[in-house]
Write a protein that binds this DNA or RNA. Structure first.
Length: 578
DNA sequence: GCCGTTTTCGGCCCGACTGTTTTCAGTCG
């Protein structure tokens, strides 16, 4: 049983307890536990009770339930709750404007169990008959059902960022006296965003009035003097919050989150006789405001270094901020080379020369061409003969270039049996080999793990490309024991890729952090298929930052000679040859 | 249900908006 499954059980328990009207702090305990477990880097299935209890938010009870889940595959408590309520009732909670109290009442008085039941009841006008409900609530439920059908769920970081950039640019033109700042999960660089939060610093309620008239607004969800909320045509919900200029820092801190980070910061404030809200940091005794203009001022007053937004996930950042041990995070400018891209030779849309020009324009100093190998016939993958011919062309081009290096590489398929898709003597000829899985995604965990471990052990493999194979919001990662892959990569000096494609971001932040902590070098690569695709490096860098990576953790921040020296093929030469 | 240089018992972040209320509950972030 993996961590995500355990996390889901606890999240379900929290929802069910909420519907039941249980003690809110008990509910929070399950929810906190669920959130922590979902991002916990080590597999809980292999941990004993003492180790489990060392996880923050996991006490005697939760540790026992985790053991029960691991050993029996189920939790008696979870099952008990499911006897009281049908499992489908949890879907009702995902509707905008429908919370636990409403679900409980719908279930108790109308026997509603499913989304279909709810829709029928709303259409029949049975909702409005309930105490505390009315025609408007009924209409809202129908709208929420419709919206859920059309664009359920979350949005890629890059999509949210584009939406935000356009909206902020428009707002800035319409209301030049007000400053607009995107905050929330977008500012933290989360791989997907549920909605878009924007601050309007120093504006008047007229700014909210303007906001709801934005051309891409599909529906106004709410509008007051300090807050407006709209649904955009893309399905992204955007919230605009008005704050006074003197609260700029406090509001940025508050609305950037994450929730557990903020709870912890507030807790820390309370311990010092201070109260923190979106308007500032206040002395409880005197009511005096002691900070709030800037984020740094708030953290400083609490004895903390300013925490970069990407680290605000309650994963040890406050302890590091307190002891001034926060890492100097990698930035896009630190990346000097790009090690994964395709050309017209396989499934790319631009040729070798165009990719080089694009990389130069992006401020890079070197790149590696890594087209697909033979097995990927769909992409016109290269066999040994074509690989060698392409390498010759790359080297000829390289000889003509000044102040820039082009490396000859390949993205070589890892076959289902773990062998490489090209002959060893061919791979040996190249400057860099990225090995990736592109087939037989459905192998079981043992097969897939052995397969990837074989690749890591192969002497000419330098990097594992998009190690989990996930496609965000589309495809689950393949079943790979990541802790074993990371251990093997560390042992063999193989780097793991952070693939920057917005729908991959693979490795993700928690795995990348674990790899880094275990001594594995990372590379941030674009996997560009067009010359414009190199801009994706931006997103890979965000993931690396969320993994607490410094430039030193990422091989392609080094100048080309240092980079090449760090590749596995150049540092595992047998001693007799040295 | 978790947790502890304030606490092993008694706390647990906090404010805005909506719809249904005639003073507030529910939802959201």
């Amino acid at each position: 049983m993996d961590n995500l499954t355990i996390a889901r059980v606890f999240a379900d328990v929290a929802d069910l307890l909420e519907i039941k009207g249980e003690n809110p702090f008990k509910i929070r305990a399950y929810r906190n536990g669920s959130d922590t477990i979902a991002h916990w880097p080590d597999p809980l299935a292999t941990m004993d009770e003492a180790a489990l209890r060392a996880i923050p938010g996991v006490g005697k009870d939760l540790a026992g339930k985790i053991r029960e889940l691991v050993e029996t595959g189920r939790s008696a408590y979870h099952q008990e709750l499911l006897q009281e309520f049908p499992p489908t009732i949890l879907e009702l909670m995902t509707l905008q404007g429908v919370g636990p109290r409403t679900v409980a009442r719908l279930h108790a008085s109308l026997g509603i169990r499913t989304l279909a039941d709810l829709e029928q009841a709303a259409k029949d006008g049975r909702i409005r008959a309930l105490k505390g409900m009315g025609p408007k609530k009924e209409a809202l439920i129908l709208e929420a059902l419709d919206e859920r059908r059309r664009h359920a769920g979350r949005h890629l970081l890059s999509d949210t960022a584009e939406t935000a950039a356009a909206l902020v640019a428009w707002l800035q033109t319409e209301c030049p006296a007000t400053e607009f700042i995107p905050v929330g999960s977008l500012r933290r660089g989360c791989e997907t965003c549920g909605d878009l939060d924007i601050l309007a610093v120093g504006g008047t309620p007229a700014v909210i009035d303007r906001f709801v008239t934005y051309g891409l607004v599909e529906r106004v969800l709410g509008q007051g003097d300090t807050k407006g909320s709209v649904l955009l045509g893309s399905g992204i919900q955007a919230d605009l919050r008005l704050v006074p200029v003197e609260s700029r820092g406090a509001a940025m801190q508050y609305f950037t989150g994450s929730k557990p980070h903020n709870i912890s910061v507030r807790d820390r404030a309370a311990g010092r006789g201070l109260k923190l809200n979106e308007y500032g940091l206040f002395d409880v005794a005197t009511g005096e405001r002691v900070a709030g203009d800037s984020e740094a001022g708030i953290y400083e007053r609490l004895g903390l270094a300013w925490v970069p937004p990407e680290l605000r996930e309650y994963r040890g950042e406050l302890e590091a901020a307190e002891s001034h041990r926060l890492p100097r995070l990698i930035a896009r400018e630190d990346v000097l080379g790009d090690l994964h891209m395709h050309t017209t030779e396989t499934d790319g849309r631009d040729d070798l020369e165009a990719m080089v020009e694009s990389a130069r324009a992006a401020g890079l100093r070197y790149l590696a061409i890594t087209d697909h190998s033979r097995s990927l016939a769909m992409a016109n993958g290269l066999d040994e003969r074509r690989v060698i011919a392409q390498a010759a062309r790359i080297r000829a081009l390289n000889d003509r270039l000044e102040d820039f290096t082009v490396l000859a590489g390949i993205e070589c398929d890892i076959r289902p049996d773990g062998s490489m898709d090209l002959a060893d003597d061919c791979l040996a000829e190249l400057d860099i080999v990225v090995a990736s899985v592109h087939s037989a995604f459905n192998q079981d965990e043992a097969q897939m793990t052995d397969r990837v471990l074989s690749a890591i052990e192969h002497p000419y493999v330098d990097v594992i490309g998009h190690p989990t194979g996930r496609l965000l919001l589309k495809r689950e990662p393949y079943r790979l024991q990541m802790d074993r892959a990371i251990a093997a990569a560390a042992a063999h000096g193989v780097a793991l890729e952070i693939n920057s494609q917005p729908d991959r971001l693979d490795l993700g932040d928690t795995h990348a952090r674990l790899a880094r902590e275990r001594g594995v070098k990372l590379v941030v690569s674009s996997d560009a298929h067009t010359r414009a695709g190199l801009v994706a490096l931006r997103w890979g860098v965000v993931v690396a930052r969320r993994a607490w990576a410094t430039p030193d953790d990422v091989l392609n921040t080094r100048p080309v000679e240092g980079f090449r020296a760090g590749l596995r093929r150049n540092r595992t030469r047998p001693r007799s040859e040295a």
